[in-house]
Simulated assay, not measured.
Amino acid sequence: MKFYPLYDKIVVTKIEEDNKIGSIFVPNNDNNIIKGKVLKIGCGKLLDSGIIKPLIVKINDIILFKDNYNIEKYKENNIEYFFLKESEIITIIN
């Protein structure tokens, strides 16, 4: 499926992390922070002045964001897509 996010919307997929180190099980974090990969980005944030400010995040960036009730989700073919705004991203990981 192709997505074309508008303005400051970003399409992200969750990066599944292995929660085992050797044979030791490591529990998931309790604060709902998700590691994801940016698939698509919109053209930028529309300011009150009518100017479009480009986004900082780029396609293929690895990010952390918090999964909460504001985040819109869509699931297709066992892939969960998250639609969020750049302001909802906690950090970009290098």
Rank of each mutant, 00 (worst) to 15 (best):
I24Y: 14
I41V: 10
G22N: 10
F82K: 07
L39F: 06
G44F: 03
V57I: 12
I34D: 06
K45V: 04
N29S: 09
I34W: 08
I89W: 04
P54S: 05
Y4N: 11
V38E: 02
S49M: 10
N32R: 15
E72Y: 11
Y7D: 08
F25Q: 15
K53R: 12
D30Y: 13
F82E: 02
N94L: 14
E86K: 04
I33Q: 15
N78Q: 13
K53W: 07
I63A: 01
K14S: 12
K66Q: 07
E72A: 09
K73E: 06
D18H: 09
N28C: 07
I52D: 01
I93D: 00
N94R: 13
L64D: 14
K53G: 01
I21E: 14
Y74K: 12
I89T: 03
F83C: 03
K20D: 06
I21W: 13
L55Q: 04
K73M: 06
F65K: 07
Y74N: 10
D61P: 03
N31F: 12
K40R: 09
S49Y: 12
I10S: 01
K58Q: 09
F25D: 15
L84V: 08
K2F: 09
K40P: 00
E72L: 11
I33R: 10
S23T: 15
K14C: 09
F3D: 06
G44H: 03
K35W: 10
D18Y: 07
N32W: 08
C43T: 12
K2I: 13
E72K: 14
S23Y: 15
E72R: 12
I51W: 06
D61V: 08
E72H: 13
K73N: 08
K58P: 05
L47T: 07
I41A: 01
T13S: 00
G36V: 00
I59N: 10
D30E: 15
D8A: 01
V26P: 01
N78V: 09
S87M: 08
G44V: 02
D30M: 15
V12R: 01
I33E: 14
D67N: 14
N31Y: 13
Y81W: 09
P5M: 03
I71L: 07
E16K: 11
I34M: 08
N78K: 14
F3G: 03
P27K: 12
I10P: 00
V57F: 02
Y69K: 15
V11S: 00
I56L: 14
V12E: 02
I33M: 12
I41C: 02
K40E: 12
K37V: 05
I59P: 00
K73H: 04
G50D: 04
G22T: 06
I71H: 06
P5G: 01
K14Q: 14
S87G: 11
I24M: 11
G42Y: 02
T13H: 00
P5L: 04
I71M: 07
K20P: 06
F83L: 05
V12I: 11
G42Q: 03
K53Y: 10
C43P: 00
C43H: 02
I34N: 07
K20R: 12
K20W: 10
I52P: 02
I71D: 05
F83E: 04
